[in-house]
Nucleic acid binder design. Sequence first.
DNA 1: AAACAAAAAGGGGTTTTTCCCCTTTTTTGT
DNA 2: ACAAAAAAGGGGAAAAACCCCTTTTTGTTT
Lengths: 212, 212
Amino acid sequence: MQHEIIIVDDHLLFARSLAGLIDSYEEYTVKHTFTNGSELVDKFSSGMKLPAIILLDINMPIMDGIATMKWLKKYQPKAKVLALSMEDNEQTVLAMLRNGAKGYLLKDIQPVLLKKALDTVIEQGFFHTQEVTKALMKSLNSENEEIVELKDVELQFMRLACEEKTYKEIADIMCKSHKTIDGYRQHLFEILEVKNRIGLVMYAIKNGIVEI
Amino acid sequence: MQHEIIIVDDHLLFARSLAGLIDSYEEYTVKHTFTNGSELVDKFSSGMKLPAIILLDINMPIMDGIATMKWLKKYQPKAKVLALSMEDNEQTVLAMLRNGAKGYLLKDIQPVLLKKALDTVIEQGFFHTQEVTKALMKSLNSENEEIVELKDVELQFMRLACEEKTYKEIADIMCKSHKTIDGYRQHLFEILEVKNRIGLVMYAIKNGIVEI
DNA sequence: AAACAAAAAGGGGTTTTTCCCCTTTTTTGT
DNA sequence: ACAAAAAAGGGGAAAAACCCCTTTTTGTTT
């Protein structure tokens, strides 16, 4: 009996060739390929049964990997998801794992490693490469702070605060009053437990809010 | 005929086992193991001839990898050095390569990769893993700025400026007048071409002056 | 739909820090 | 002994940080 796989990836070419590869394995068969998270959610909502493994791309339009993971965590907590990604962003890895992904694969992996990942998830329920373990250890050691979810405006403000701009310039860019920006600043100082803008910048860097 | 290798590493246990491994290869023999850069320099100064490859640890007391590379670049420019390191710090990699290292290996590599690295250096004169190539490409794309060498006091100031401290507090810590600190600040603004303390912090992070 | 609470946006004003221009004194290297 | 660099300092403008307060928006309950 074959294990059913679902692929969710907006790069159709990649999704199809991945499907071809997986279908070539005796033990696996690809049942569906979707191009974004909400297609997957729709199918589950209309009664689709859980496959053995979901291969979930992270960078997608409409409903991205993390949003999809959050939905799955809530409504399909038994889903076994392997996250797929082009780049190796530590914060994204952690976000996916926090929301219940069973493993994390870079898209340029060797086919043999994909096969091994699938087998390992079926047998042991998870698959973690050395890189992920490293990221996990790092987060265990350094981050005892609880994770604060920031809103979009706050993220935008944080990114601008990391540039050599005055708050007045930031206010103009964000089309808000100088005083509103001051409110953002004060609020972020409190929830992130920092004392000044330097602390804000260091927080943004440590938590991958800004590109370095 | 065997190629002669010299190992420079302060972790004697590691250096010895590495030597054992290398001696087990037919084509290579370890001629010396030193525990810091100045031992190596001393031997060269007293007429030791150049080995085929020097395996040089980066994190050492007394005279570290980068200092040793600088000496070798000046007095033994034909030395073929493979840098060894525990961690994968992009800035350090680049500093080693800029000073003429032929390659960069993480200490946790597979023995077979070490063998390949040695062979490749002998045959082609260099050995670069994918990670190094990636770091190189990144530095090519982003860093057109020239490298500014900072003095010790300036580095200390930079590190403190990345913490949530006022300049007054920094002055106390560094036992300098508040105005002297202001002089450091202004001087660094000019040579690093930044406009404010945020720019200073971002520079420090991009150039590995502070740990993230 | 009305009422209520909570969060967001904005205003005014004070204190502190940051930043910049300048001069004087001290230290350092040759 | 001399020049150059580092350190210390003064004065002032701008920005950042901080505090208290009002209005508007948003979401939730009954």
